[in-house]
Design a protein around this nucleic acid. Structure first.
Length: 270
DNA sequence: AACTCACTCAACCGCCTGGCT
DNA sequence: GAGCCAGGCGGTTGAGTGAGT
């Protein structure tokens, strides 16, 4: 007989998270934090297990998540660190600010491993110094007995340089108001913490159970409608839709903080 | 248009680890 | 030291999607 599940799965949702669940999780964590993942779903009114909530937060909803394709520098960093650390995805992720272990693992398994194995079949390309994408793996050949120490130094070096790069990238992305793709739900939530830029503080939001029900019912229609009109992976302004529906039909039930939200500043990407 | 196939990536599963009693 | 528990981690899965036929 196998190990018992981490929690009772009876009656719990599985599979893809809905926007309603996301919003509920974000709101709860912004307000109360996540000191106890196991208790969180119940307290937040989510029909999910704690692990699922933790994973969703860490891999997708966390404010500092960096979305979009990996840059060449990031890919090279992954390759170099994987060369030294192996499948220590969380350690590799700690060197790439805004990237998650899951994301890195996926990139490795889907792109980098294949690319490397094809390069191994033609060894010339690995040593080709004229190729800007060359891996320079020989730079990291070190005696086994010193491996961990040197890896630490490597990690330190990479971390500091990537933190700087990430900061710069984020600055330029946020300053471009046309760049919808650079402003995600995560950014929106993150921005709640920046009171100078945005007057709203989501930690002050009190959303009553009745309102959640209203959100869920209204949003089912809104999302289904929007998805019909946004085939092809285009941006859905989900919060705007939500606001529109809420203001139309449930204005007298809305908490004053929610009523005063300016959703124009926020975009959601699906 | 319908079908198949390959690919991607979010989410799940189960083991490991460390802290607490 | 033993047992329990929660969180963390890495491997794996499967739904969704796009390309090709």
């Amino acid at each position: 007989m196998g190990r018992a599940p981490c929690c009772s799965k009876v009656g719990l949702n599985k599979g893809a998270w809905t926007p309603q669940e996301d919003l509920r999780l974000i709101t709860y964590i912004q307000k109360y934090g996540h000191s106890n993942w196991r208790a969180l779903p119940k307290l937040a009114g989510l029909k999910r297990c704690g692990k699922s909530c933790r994973l969703r937060w860490i891999n997708y909803l966390r404010p500092d998540i960096k979305r979009g394709n990996f840059t060449q520098e990031e890919e090279e960093t992954i390759i170099k660190l994987h060369n030294k650390l192996g499948n220590k995805w969380s350690k590799i992720a700690s060197c790439l600010p805004g990237r998650t272990d899951n994301e890195i693992k996926n990139v490795w398994n889907t792109h980098l491993r294949k690319r490397l194995s094809s390069k191994e079949q033609s060894p010339k390309s690995i040593n080709a110094t004229t190729d800007s994408s060359s891996l320079e793996l020989e730079k990291f050949e070190i005696p086994v007995e010193n491996e961990m120490d040197i890896s630490s130094l490597l990690i330190e070096d990479l971390t500091s340089s990537h933190i700087e790069e990430t900061k710069n990238a984020e600055k330029s992305a946020c300053s471009n108001s046309d760049s919808i793709s650079a402003f995600t739900f995560s950014d929106a939530v993150n921005s709640f913490e920046d009171a100078d830029k945005y007057p709203l503080d989501i930690t002050d939001m009190i959303i009553e159970p009745e309102l959640w029900e209203e959100i869920e019912q209204k949003d089912k229609e809104a999302i289904s409608h929007d998805r019909e009109e946004n085939k092809g992976g285009e941006v859905i302004d989900w919060l705007q839709q939500l606001e529109r529906e809420l203001m139309k039909d449930a204005n007298d039930q809305i908490d004053p903080f929610l009523r005063d939200l300016n959703f124009d500043d926020f975009k959601i990407i699906f």
